[in-house]
């Protein structure tokens, strides 16, 4: 935290600025005809207390920045601080120089002036602080917007790739080719499924959020095609709470995760496998769990997220600015990928 003040080189102009005010205050007191020590005491006390208030505000604003509708509170705060500072300074100086009647009288006479000075200074400092954060925030928002644009491009690219996912597409066509001879009805059905699936991946980008129900339907098409390809070896279970079906989530966010689970499961074992997709709602999150079996002896899942999962994680980060929405864990021979979607 302190690095923000020191590293950003804000600290030097800040100190310089207060040093100037320190001199001005001292000069004013000398000008009013009081001795040097009074001038020094006054200057140091005023300047240091205002500078400290400024620093305190800097850190307070770091964790809490008033929104436009709350500026009223900020003004109240500035007023309260100005009053407190005026009373505090007058009391401290009167006490310190209590034997100098001329000076204490002066102090009591000028309190409105002191209040105005404090009020203006604190207002100014708080405005400065606010601006510093405002520009910083602006920069972050801009950065995220650029990343978001990039994401749209990436998503488009990955959709294209999806659409042309060579292994999946050609093997599906090969299966259809095999079905045509013996089971023409089934082949027609599979052509329909494949078409619907491909159409789904071509959806317009504007509809970035879709309901869970739509997303699961799309997923089911994919799973059904894979089941035709792999026959009895592949079993799937999709369980979803009824209440969750209308919740919105990013389009095609589940697809790569399930695809990864299928690849991982089917190519890492020779047995029959079950891919499970479970959706629950917990504490304002849609929790989607995808599990697949694997062979811990030979697979050694890559640390952290696993294989094709990084793109899904990246998308979640760009959409929600959070890195903790996807987790991958391996226990014994089950690999679990969990996605959390904040319910809006």
């Amino acid at each position: 935290m302190s690095t923000e003040l020191t590293k950003g080189k804000i600290i030097w102009p800040y100190l310089f600025w207060w040093a100037i005010w320190c001199f001005i205050t001292a000069w004013l007191i000398l000008y009013a005809g009081f001795p040097f020590k009074n001038a020094i005491a006054e200057a140091i006390l005023d300047t240091v207390s205002l500078a400290l208030v400024g620093v305190a505000m800097f850190y307070a604003m770091k964790s809490y920045r008033p929104r436009t509708q709350n500026y009223f509170y900020l003004r109240i705060w500035v007023l309260v601080l100005a009053i407190a500072l005026t009373i505090g300074e007058t009391a401290a100086l009167s006490r310190f120089f209590e034997k100098e009647v001329a000076y204490t009288g002066f102090l009591h006479r000028i309190w409105p002036l002191r209040f105005c000075y404090n009020f203006l200074m604190i207002s100014f400092v708080s405005l400065l602080n606010w601006l510093v954060y405002y520009f910083k925030e602006q920069e972050e928002v801009k950065g995220r917007a650029t990343a978001q644009e990039q994401l749209v491009k990436d998503a488009e690219l990955s959709k294209l790739r999806q659409q042309l996912q060579p292994h999946f597409l050609f093997n599906s066509l090969n299966s259809i080719s095999a079905l045509v001879g013996s089971r023409p009805e089934e082949s027609r059905h599979m052509i329909q499924q494949l078409s619907d699936f491909l159409r789904g991946t071509l959806r317009k980008e504007e509809q970035q959020l879709v309901t869970l129900e739509e997303e699961l339907n799309h997923l089911r098409l994919y799973l059904d095609i894979e089941k035709v390809r792999f026959g009895h070896r592949l079993h799937t279970e999709v369980v979803c709470e009824e209440a969750g079906k209308q919740i919105k989530l990013p389009h095609l966010i589940l697809q790569p995760v399930v695809e990864n689970a299928i690849k991982f499961g089917l190519y890492d074992t020779t047995e029959t496998i079950t891919i499970k997709v479970e959706v629950t709602i917990e504490n304002g999150y849609l929790i989607i769990k995808v599990t697949n079996p694997f062979d811990p002896k030979t697979a050694a899942p890559k640390s952290g997220t696993g294989f094709g999962l990084s793109s899904a994680q990246r998308r979640l980060y760009l959409l929600y600015a959070r890195n903790d929405l996807m987790q991958a864990t391996a226990t014994e021979n089950i690999f679990t990928t969990t996605i959390k979607i904040p319910v809006i």
Binding site: N171, N174, S175, S177, A178, L179, G181, S182, V228, R229, F230, G231, R233, L266
Partner: peptide, 12 residues
């Protein structure tokens, strides 16, 4: 081949 239908086709 790990896909039964792919084998069906070759057999056919």
């Amino acid at each position: 081949d790990d896909e039964p239908l792919a084998r069906t086709l070759v057999r056919e």
